[in-house]
Amino acid sequence: MMGRSILEIKHVTKDFGDGNSTIRVLKNINLTVKQGEFIAVVGPSGSGKSTLLSVIGALLTPTEGDILIDQEVVHLQSKKRFNQLRAGKIGFIFQSDNLIPYLNVSGQLKLVNQIAKNNKSTGQKRANELLSRLDLLQRRNNYPAELSGGEKQRVAIARAFMNDPSIILADEPTASLDSVRGRKVVEMISQEVKSRNKAAIMVTHDERMLDLCDKVYVMKDGCLARE
């Protein structure tokens, strides 16, 4: 079942320059994620985990090295293809919630569907399915300002799954959830990965979630190593 690689990271480094000094946040990262794999990244705060996810998700361009999603080198693509990649193949779950303030819960999902240019009625069906699985059906007409932190995070998760992505990038998705809901979310990510043959990378601090993941990597001072 595990065969084709969805994500390949080759010799990736990332420097941040503030003024005249530059800091190397990612140092020669190599990683391959295959279909059906659910990977966890742990590590102290400030070690570069969020930066790694941003580089993979084409939110940042790597200073050196290549990132291939479905055999396509991401940062060599045109701007348009870049967006298509993001809209079609990557599902982001940010560390803090990043919902559009003036759209209600269904609207957030509808927006993703519209941007990915997917069929309206299948989108509707998918949204309902996601909302019921994440216990959000009652809140579908509420706006972000009316939701609790946990609810917002679940909406962000639903949004990440909405476009049927090849790879899910989750940055501490359970940080604002209680452990029962948190585990449920991670189980859901795992289930999605297994049943649909996707891939996922999750940054987490919660050791209790690690048993749901296939591999655990440790990030330390910008270097990534298998645990």
Binding site: R86, L111, I115
Partner: peptide, 15 residues
Amino acid sequence: HQFGILKAIGAQTWY
């Protein structure tokens, strides 16, 4: 900030 979110979920600038 909002445009950033939209770009992150794949919206093109034209959208």
